[in-house]
Amino acid sequence: MRRWWPGLLLVSPSIVAIAVFVYGLLGWNFKVAMTDQHDEISQGHFVGLENFTGIWDQERWGISVRHAVVFTVVFVVGALVLGWFLAFLMEKGIRGEGGFRAIYLFPMAVSFIATGVVWRWLMNSGTGERAVGLNRLLPDFLQWHWFRDPGWGMAAMAVPAIWQMSGYVMALFLAGFRGVPEELRESARVDGCTEWQVYRHIVLPYLRPVTLAALIILGHISLKVFDLIVAVSGKQIITDVPAIFMWNAVFDSHDPAKGATIAAYIVISVCVFVVPYLIWNARRRDGR
């Protein structure tokens, strides 16, 4: 009895704050999403899941979901592969590792807004004689319209995000690599494994938890992405994602219910990433 209450007292402010500002507001958001309050003045009435199903009839919603999926896949895979590769190179013990590590991690310190402003220029859509930014460095047949490309523009949008986050992924993987006990590798080598087999059967399985953690972190950043896209292209359909659509619904067309519905979908999609991870984590801990 006497042993737990100081602890509880210590954490209770944050419990209260989280209860009100996270879960309380989340709940409120879901409540608004289930009303027909389509302007700021009227009192909404409960309409159940009507908004959640109705939004799929809107062409713009389909586009923004498709964009979010393309962005997420390219960004997560790109950052994981690049981050892993950088860590793999570092793990070989190159000279001046500390310097390289700092250089690769630096982009993390930049905000997405600043990244976006710079990359907006780098990804200028001018080609041929009018090329500026990256197109100027590329041969003619490789120049393209970057994020203005109607088909794969969102893949281009993922490039600055990969640039920014791959250093962080590298740091995670590097820690993972370093966590593999040297004895294990040595004994595998003694048993006649080639260096490739050592990686394939010893190191990679060790990296699985790190990979999963990186996947979760990148995935939830990606599904909520807003600032980067606003900084690069503003609020245009051509690079629309749910978070932009939500801003548009709430602040431009003044439709709280629609905005709350989109916000709810964003939360749900992040949960799809995070909850299985939490369950898996909890199980693993129990297993030990």
Partner: peptide
Amino acid sequence: NDAWRTAINDAVGLFQQ
């Protein structure tokens, strides 16, 4: 009004594609 203008903006954005 804002709602109408936003809807016109959406329509133009979709038409552009």
